[in-house]
């Protein structure tokens, strides 16, 4: 839980770096202005970039502690593997962050850094869920997954659609920042909007429809199961917030911020809020899928279990 909460803070710190156009305020890596331990004057863009690095180091340490603790104390083998995977991912993510700095923020690498950040956040949230008392101490409900397609399928499709949404959003954000009108001015704003933002907006409608389908199915059929109801309700609240924030971020970044001399507070906070709410939507959908897979049994599984029961009786 501590790791997941700290990772959320790191997401905010990372989003602040991009929104403040401070990704290269500290030009070197892994050192900061040539030093491993000295804290540079925290002014201008350095405040955002170096803070991000410090929080990231803390997350790295926490992940090492979590992995060691899981390896020693956790009886579930797959959990130990998940902890190791999280550790590998956090190292990879750190190197990816350094790579983007050393290569002057190529949008592909920066977008990958943003995408893997939310992937790590989802893993941290999942680990918190898997080690929670409610998960460990309760039995599976083995409810029938009614409807076609089933919730088991729908919840995975939702995650894939949300992940695609994340990639599209990150691509737009980093292409605009690096090459757009307020960056190097290499690509016309309208071209970036058409190529990168439009697919993100179109997919937003698809994702919203899918999310509404999943959430209403959960609430209609399993509304009495708190572990399913809570993430479904949270998703409905988050997606409404996210749509408003997305529109606000568009206005602030594209319409009002196209000729801005510098990042304005409304642009910074609307875009940061949009990024981290998106992360919250993704993580909540992952949590919902975990509970769906735990508590709902597909019709095939049910049939197999029934056949096995009959065979045992014979």
């Amino acid at each position: 839980m501590l790791l997941a909460g700290s990772t959320f803070v790191l997401l905010v710190a990372g989003a602040l770096v991009t929104s403040n156009d401070a990704g290269l305020a500290v030009p070197d890596w892994p050192t900061s202005f040539g030093s491993v331990y000295k804290v540079p004057p925290m002014v201008g863009g350095v405040r955002f970039e170096h803070s991000h690095r410090m929080v990231a180091e803390l997350i790295g340490l926490l992940t090492i502690v979590m992995a060691l603790w899981t390896w020693r104390a956790e009886p579930r083998r797959w959990m130990r593997r998940l902890a190791l995977g999280a550790l590998a991912l956090v190292i990879f993510q750190g190197v990816l962050g350094g790579t983007t700095v050393l290569n002057y923020l190529p949008p592909a690498v920066s977008s990958a850094h943003a995408t893997f950040a939310q992937t790590f956040f989802c893993i941290a949230v999942l680990m918190a869920v898997f080690t929670s008392r409610s998960w460990v101490a309760t039995e599976r409900l083995a409810l029938r997954d009614e409807g076609t397609p089933g919730l088991r399928t729908l919840s995975i499709v939702l995650i894939i659609a949300l992940y695609a949404q994340l990639v599209l959003g990150a691509a737009f954000r980093h292409v605009w920042t690096k090459l757009g009108p307020t960056g190097a001015n290499r690509i016309a704003g309208s071209e970036i909007v058409g190529t990168y933002l439009l697919p993100h907006v179109v997919n937003a409608f698809l994702v919203t429809a899918l999310l509404l389908w999943v959430a209403t199915r959960v609430l209609a059929r399993y509304g009495n199961v708190p572990t399913l109801r809570r993430p479904a309700t949270t998703l409905l609240f988050l997606v409404a917030t996210q749509l408003v924030l997305g529109f606000g971020a568009y206005l602030a970044r594209v319409e009002w911020g196209r000729d801005a001399a510098q990042p304005h507070p409304f642009m910074v906070w609307s875009t940061v809020a949009h990024v981290v709410t998106g992360a919250a939507v993704l993580a909540t959908s992952v949590v919902l899928a975990a509970h769906v897979y735990r508590n709902l049994v597909s019709q095939e599984q049910e049939q197999l279990a029934g056949d096995a029961g009959k065979a045992a009786a014979i």
Binding site: L84, G85, A88, I91, F92, V95, T99, L102
Partner: peptide, 17 residues
């Protein structure tokens, strides 16, 4: 998973180099 991450890490270090 850990192995693939390690390989990715080495690849990235090589790229930086």
């Amino acid at each position: 998973m850990a192995l693939s991450a390690l390989l990715s890490l080495l690849l990235l270090i090589a790229l930086i180099g």
